[in-house]
Design a protein around this nucleic acid. Sequence first.
DNA 1: AGTCGAGCGCGCA
DNA 2: TGCGCGCTCGACT
Length: 101
Amino acid sequence: MDFNEKVYRLCSQIPLGRVSTYKLIAQKMSSKAYRAVGQALKHNPNPPIIPCHRVVESSGDLGGFGGKLRSQKKIRLLKGEGVEIKGNKIVDFKNKLYRFK
DNA sequence: AGTCGAGCGCGCA
DNA sequence: TGCGCGCTCGACT
């Protein structure tokens, strides 16, 4: 089980209308390589299977794909899934946060 | 309170 | 082999 495979697995476990954070994912795999998680998702080998756009920063911000990158469409898609986004922040982030039980 | 720097793991040059 | 990244947190200001 490679590092990024775990990441992919966890991401795919995120229910519809929920989001998660890099930190939680890293902690779930007993690592503190938060950035590595982001990189793994960035390289994302299975776009349709892995909802990388549901993974955001722990502060509730979208992260790199929201404000910095031009991936505004992902936000649009995310909204369509039930995750409301205001600017580059997630509305009721804590409420929608999925903790990988 | 806000800013700065370090540290993790993987991918690419 | 070395550096950067879709980040996070602790320490200092």
